[in-house]
Write a protein that binds this DNA or RNA. Sequence first.
DNA 1: AACGGTCTTGGTCGGTTGACCAACTATTCG
DNA 2: CGAATAGTTGGTCAACCGACCAAGACCGTT
Lengths: 205, 205
Amino acid sequence: MPRIPAEQRRAELVAAAWRVMAAEGVAAATTRAIVAEAGMPLGAFHYCFRDKAELFHELVRHTVTEDLAAAMAPLKVTTDVRKALRDSLRGLWQRMTADRDRQLVLNELTAFSLRDPALVELQVWKYQQYLDGATRYFETLAERAGVSWGIPTALVGRMFVAVLGGASDTWLVTGDSAGGWQMLRAFATALAAQTRPLAPGRRTA
Amino acid sequence: MPRIPAEQRRAELVAAAWRVMAAEGVAAATTRAIVAEAGMPLGAFHYCFRDKAELFHELVRHTVTEDLAAAMAPLKVTTDVRKALRDSLRGLWQRMTADRDRQLVLNELTAFSLRDPALVELQVWKYQQYLDGATRYFETLAERAGVSWGIPTALVGRMFVAVLGGASDTWLVTGDSAGGWQMLRAFATALAAQTRPLAPGRRTA
DNA sequence: AACGGTCTTGGTCGGTTGACCAACTATTCG
DNA sequence: CGAATAGTTGGTCAACCGACCAAGACCGTT
């Protein structure tokens, strides 16, 4: 048997846990199912992790970090606010609808974390990151396009995150990705209509 | 021991199951926990229900029906689109944020149902009801106010449902109900701006 | 008062879960 | 080379799960 450092084994167990969750749901991610997926004996689990909670904590942390970076990538910034918004939303939407199991697990994980005080902070941090990212996006977008928002950018960001999350939920249930995309396009139009052109010669700080 | 008809006992078990879910989460709603909460012996469970799945099905059906009616109630219709929207959203938001456990269970229930083919149809029906209700609301609102939407009302309804759902999710994690309300107000403004006054003398059918 | 159906109850079955441990083996370092 | 360290393994424990059943208690009907 090749010797494997505990750190690598931890990572493999986390990856296996994720695979089990995607295939069978969070509830089915028992220690035995996880080690079976990882191809390890049962005892290996409690050698690498003190608790099942410890693995969960690491899995959530890892997943949120990864998801966060990927979610920020598709944001486009051009001089046309409506087009930039629409393109950004399309990128995000394609990414979300490309992997249903991923969104499913993400939802289950959020629901699960809300019952555990040790995990809820991670979710708070995740939403804070989403909000900050969206807010900064709208600020740079307005600056680049030479417009200003009639609403505080923090609220615009919050609305953006809420709409995307709600669209995902609806899609997970109904499976209607095309309808979701139409809605998002309409949202981009409505949001872009909330901008006003800056007076010439003036610039935001 | 007073004789109790099986039908009433079913209802009591469903109510007890809901109480357990609200207090401890959906995962903790075992048959034993439910009958303990209802103050019944364990055997009573499988006398009233064939399966645990049968109870779940009835619970989801009952809950969705109840929630649906309550969600439709706060919708106001006046001649001022923005005010009507804002008031409707405020009513809905107050109702949602008034009972955190309820929203929590509703979320867990949705996540849980998405793994069960027998339950997913109920969730589909629920979303369909939400969508239809919202769409009809926006139609009557436009008619009453003498305006028309620049976007198909079905998309407006979908956006409405998505924003509300997303706002709920964010609030469940962050606990910031005031921020959520500010966002919803801004959304009402943006949505109302999507209406155009009807040409005088013209009327929608 | 006898009966047949409705309801009630305690006990038990096989199976799964998270956690733990003692024994064993490979690797490293003095 | 030999001990100390890090990694590996199968087996086992108490607890809990959903499901089921036989036996009894109750009640309206006849």
